[in-house]
Design a binder for these strands. Structure first.
Lengths: 186, 186
DNA sequence: ACCTGAACACCGTTCAAGT
DNA sequence: ACCTGAACACCGTTCAAGT
């Protein structure tokens, strides 16, 4: 039960990546309350204090998680497309990321300091893309991002039900296309 | 410092209404983390345990707060108006309520059990009103509610700055009118 | 009916001490 | 460099005891 004191044999310690992975699982399973430094340490077979060698604190941990989860949203897909399809792609990936880990998104909302750099990059990228499409780019950026949030977070309802989750994702795609039609055409 | 044991003289005890008011202040000042049963008790000059005679637990407290804050949203305004202006009025009041206490809205999002009855009534009312305006009433209800949330929560940024908050409220009105134009006209 | 102290089972985080 | 136990200052909530 009790681990030996001092530095463990090579390969026995925790690594930052393991911490993030375990933290995300804890968050998915038990929400913001499920992710405690102590529960995280137990899951990794380590004392809570050892975590602080790899992560600044709980807020820093959430910030790192958000960077990891949202990283894919800005990944450029091969050939460059027109502005509309790029906006569509970014929002779809963002909606997917939020939908995969709604509890993370919620936890970040509640913890102001955890709002990570990637989140800002996403909105910035959307703003500049939308500026090429419409004069009301701020207005539409807010509407689109807010709806991605709301719809993504709503996936908490379909906990486990893969079928329902898929239909909700389709509904989002439809709504997104509908909104893009409206902001592009007139 | 120490209060006498037993039931205090008439009028000295806490009342449910005082608890709710103090809890809302704590929430506004320190967010979800600022509202603790212990801090709340100290502010009311009472031991934490006495609160449990007036409130089921912390989740029940949040639920009660949400009922109080969102109650005005469904208040019927004198003469009945057409569907569009009623939708507009409800969303405006909802946006105001969220904007006045963004931390409460955030806390309720994070605590699933705290989602109060009034919140459901609001979306139900919006859904039936929108059904009279457009066939895509679910889609538009989601878009409108999500945007009210997002824009209302964004008021956390303008902490204290009354001028900025007012301009953000105006921006919301503009966006809301814009969306209503789009969903009514075609 | 309502308030109390004591207690239980938790938190995040710091610090000095180990290797 | 990294992990440790002990400690500090907190949490929500239960319970039996007071009036």
């Amino acid at each position: 039960m009790t681990r030996p004191r001092g530095r463990p044999a090579r390969g026995k310690g925790v690594e930052r990546d393991d911490i993030l992975t375990a933290a995300l699982t804890l968050l998915d399973e038990g929400g913001g309350q499920g992710l405690t430094m102590r529960a995280l340490a137990i899951r990794l077979g380590v004392t809570p204090m050892s975590l602080y060698h790899h992560v600044e604190n709980r807020t820093g941990l959430l910030r790192a998680l958000s960077d990891r989860v949202y990283a894919e949203v800005l990944e450029t897909t091969g050939s460059p497309a027109d502005h509309r399809t790029e906006v569509r792609a970014i929002l779809t990936r963002y909606h997917n990321a939020v939908g995969r880990h709604p509890q993370l998104t919620l936890a970040i909302f509640a913890e102001p300091g955890a709002f990570a750099g990637v989140s800002r990059q996403i909105t910035d990228r959307l703003t500049s893309l939308l500026a090429e499409i419409t004069a009301e780019h701020i207005l539409w950026r807010d509407i689109l991002v807010d709806h991605a949030h709301g719809s993504g977070l709503a996936l908490t309802t379909a906990k486990g039900d893969q079928k329902q989750a898929e239909s909700m994702r389709e509904r989002y795609q439809h709504a997104l296309d509908r909104l893009l039609d409206l902001l592009v055409e007139p």
